[in-house]
C-alpha cells in the first residue's frame, strides 16, 4: 500500500528552556507539551496517565508553576521555562525529595511518580515546612492507584524535615 507523506497542516518553531537547557523544535498546532517533551526531546520521564488533566502524571513545572503538560499546547509554551522529573537530580545526585521518597518506599509501579515528585517539589519550594494536611491537600490532584498515598505523604514530610506525620512508624 503506498504510504502518503504527511504534510503537517501548520508547523511552527518553538524555543523553550527545558531543565536549564535551551531547546528548539517544530510542532504542529495540536502538539501538546507532553508529546513534545516525550517524542521530540526524548524526555519520557513525564508520563501520560489520562490525557484529560485529571491524573497528574504529566505534571511539569512551567515557569515554576505546576502544570498538566497534557493540557498545554507546545506552541503556547514557547519561550517558557520547563522543568521535568529528569531535572530534579543534580550531577547524578538524587535531590533531597527524591532521596526521601526512596527511603520512605513512597512508590510502587512508578507510573504516577514523576507527577508527584514535581507537584511535591513545587509545594516544598513554596512552603518548606508543610503540615501533613497541607501535603495531602497539595497532592490531592495527583492520582496513585498503588500505594494509598500514605508512603508518598511520609516521603514529602521526610524531605521537608518537618515532624513525622501521625501515622509514621520509625523503621
Amino acid at each position: 500500500m503506498p504510504e502518503r507523506e504527511v504534510q503537517p497542516q501548520a508547523s511552527l518553531t518553538i524555543r523553550l528552556q527545558v531543565n536549564g537547557e535551551e531547546r528548539e523544535g517544530a510542532v504542529e498546532g495540536r502538539t501538546t507539551l507532553a508529546d513534545f517533551l516525550r517524542d521530540q526531546l526524548g524526555l519520557t520521564g513525564t508520563h501520560l496517565g489520562c490525557e484529560h488533566g485529571v491524573c497528574g502524571a504529566c505534571t511539569v513545572l512551567l515557569d515554576s508553576q505546576p502544570a498538566r503538560s497534557c493540557l498545554v499546547l507546545a506552541a503556547s509554551a514557547d519561550g517558557s521555562r520547563v522543568e521535568t522529573v529528569e531535572g530534579l537530580a543534580e550531577n547524578g545526585q538524587l535531590s533531597r525529595l527524591q532521596q526521601a521518597m526512596w527511603d520512605s518506599h513512597s512508590f510502587q509501579c512508578g507510573f504516577c511518580t514523576p507527577g508527584f515528585l514535581i507537584q511535591a517539589a513545587a509545594l516544598l519550594a513554596e512552603n518548606p515546612s508543610p503540615t501533613e494536611a497541607e501535603v495531602r491537600h497539595a497532592l490531592s490532584g495527583n492520582l496513585c492507584r498503588c500505594t494509598g498515598y500514605e508512603s508518598i505523604v511520609r516521603g514529602v514530610m521526610a524531605a521537608a524535615g518537618g515532624p513525622e506525620p501521625a501515622g509514621a512508624e520509625p523503621r
Partner: peptide
Amino acid sequence: RRVEDERLLTGRGSFVA
C-alpha cells in the same frame, strides 16, 4: 530500599510508551 526506585525516581523508567 527498593532497587527499582532510583530509576523510577529520576524519570528513567522504561514503560512501553
